[in-house]
Design a protein around this nucleic acid. Structure first.
Lengths: 190, 190
DNA sequence: ACCTGAACACCGTTCAAGT
DNA sequence: ACCTGAACACCGTTCAAGT
């Protein structure tokens, strides 16, 4: 029975969902697939590349959005957050893969955000940074949210203190700061 | 000769600067200090806590800034970026410690940014998120910048392509988006 | 109080050799 | 072409025992 990239990414995703990123090791993955650790290196150059493939699997549900630039930005970011929250340690894994430049899906997303920023009136030489800044926010916010969620779920119910504000509304607020900033910048005229 | 926390953090910082975060292991650090690995666990509960202490050492030069809220935000963020760029993999290490909630200095910084956002007119229940959002940007941007810098420095001179724009100006532009967003939000009135 | 020695239970990666 | 077996060079953490 031949081992295919798809099988490896499937098993890696299952390992991630069930045990978290700390237990997603090449050796454990090989054991799960009943192959020797070295077999994985026929299909992937190294662990980073494998994690990049898992990141792209997680990001598959993030689709294109149509509408004006505000709708597209908030739509894509909402889908990104949802995708990250759908897998244990999803935000952490995708953040790492993005930083390592191993996720094609993240590159595509930054490109679409760059287009939206351009449409909003951001100068071409700054549009990609505007897109990346939005991504930094979504990854940072969601990694934070997810670590708190997972810590709470692991027994330590503390009943959060002051803000009754739900996470979705807080997410939208922070994103709104960036969207307003992009809009303000284009009005000001570079 | 007794081992003190200070000596351990000193040696860890030296290891980081000279060899990078991948070589900053408990065992290697113990070897450098000529003690057994177990000795470190008398002074630090685990590796995360030790890395948090290194993060706070890196962040020591980030001081208070006086002036109106815009001056304070841009001043603190500039100092933060400078501090991160002063140590090999500084942005990556501080990001990890911040995410793990192990850096007191980062908590202090978020608190000061929260105050600045409040002064700018952001509602109290959203002011901390505004501060965190600024931090997500600085950490994301600088980690990116530093990984490119270090990759370039490691021989692979490619002579960057299109934008003659220096990193400092790009950093300021992205930060400006957030500052404009905060300002726009307070004018809009929550 | 502070540290050693040794163990436990792992890692990622490589590569000759097999089929 | 694809995989095994075994090795290489490591990890973080614990804990009885020593001083």
């Amino acid at each position: 029975m031949q081992l295919h990239k798809r099988d490896v990414v499937d098993a890696a995703t299952a390992l991630l969902d069930n045990y978290g990123i700390a237990d997603l090791s090449m050796r454990r993955l090989a054991r799960e697939l009943a192959v020797s650790p070295g077999a994985l290196y026929w299909h992937f150059a190294n662990k980073q590349e494998l994690l990049g493939a898992v990141a792209d699997r997680i990001l598959a549900p993030v689709t294109d959005v149509t509408g004006d630039w505000r709708v597209r930005v908030t739509g894509m970011c909402g889908q990104l957050r949802d995708a990250l929250l759908s897998h244990t340690d999803g935000a952490e894994l995708v953040s790492a893969s993005f930083a390592a430049g191993q996720s094609e899906e993240m590159s595509r997303l930054v490109e679409r955000l760059r287009e939206a920023a351009t449409e909003a009136g951001v100068a071409p030489e700054h549009a990609e940074l505007a897109g990346r800044t939005v991504v930094y926010y979504v990854l940072g916010f969601t990694a934070d949210e997810q670590s708190r969620l997972q810590w709470d779920a692991a027994g330590a119910r503390v009943a959060q203190p002051v803000w009754t504000d739900d996470a979705g509304a807080r997410f939208a607020f922070g994103l709104g700061l960036l969207v307003d900033g992009i809009a303000a910048h284009s009005r000001t005229g570079a």
